[in-house]
Design a protein around this nucleic acid. Structure first.
Lengths: 119, 119
DNA sequence: CTAACCTACAACCAAATGGTTGTAGAACGT
DNA sequence: ACGTTCTACAACCATTTGGTTGTAGGTTAG
């Protein structure tokens, strides 16, 4: 997972991912689009490949680079999990507030409010 | 965006994010959970703060660190955009295949296939 | 006031990153 | 067979990163 996010933490690499998701590109085809040496682009592709965000496939003398959407989905699910953690916290606060505003009708509300701060 | 993904490319920092999304923690409270010095955890928090993934708020002599869910949502949307690019490509291929199998009925299908490889 | 605690920041160090150039091997066109 | 093209990899360099220790400033407790 470290590899995935590290690979995405660079604008050039994100641009490469966006390109090869639309259609496979050869390495030199990709390199032509950036103001840096061929070897530099090659290294960026290697970083993406190490993170399984792209895959290379020999096609004659050139190497076709394609995007791996499954890996992107995995990263997305992790972020979604974080959002869920946050949502659970907000829901707990809301429940607490709701119990507070209707405290005059029910006698004791402390019996069901202690399962939210469990570690 | 570089800052966000770079900040998430470390297991310790991701763990910190998960913790403070559930409830705010002080820096020393966070540092107690990891096998490294206080200053190291402080640096990790600084990286997360620079990426706007967490925010600090003075509370007496300690500093409360909270998670910023909006920034997480922004990163998630970027990944979702990548998935959309991929999906558009697959749809185009499907359309191409569908046109291919029914090619004997329609004469030419190449007139509307040139707006997808624009830069 | 003094001691203990939480935080901030600087200096330092080993290792990784992001770029360069150069060399070398395969595959293709003529 | 030969030159060109595409790719891989090594060596090198400047900068950043992730960790350490040490010092110093505020804030709370006694």
């Amino acid at each position: 997972m470290d590899l995935i996010f590290h690979a995405l933490a660079d604008a050039t690499r994100r641009d490469i991912v966006a390109r090869v998701l639309q259609r496979p590109h050869s390495v030199s085809e990709l390199a032509a689009g950036y103001a840096m040496s061929f070897a530099a682009v090659q290294k960026h592709v290697a970083v993406l490949e190490r993170a399984a965000l792209v895959s290379k496939e020999r096609k004659g003398r050139e190497q076709l680079v394609s995007g791996e959407v499954d890996t992107i989905a995995r990263a997305q699910e992790l972020l979604r999990g974080y959002e869920q953690l946050w949502r659970a916290r907000v829901d707990a606060i809301d429940a607490l507030l709701a119990a507070d505003t209707s405290a005059d009708t029910s006698a004791d509300t402390s019996d069901n409010s202690d399962q939210r701060d469990r570690k």
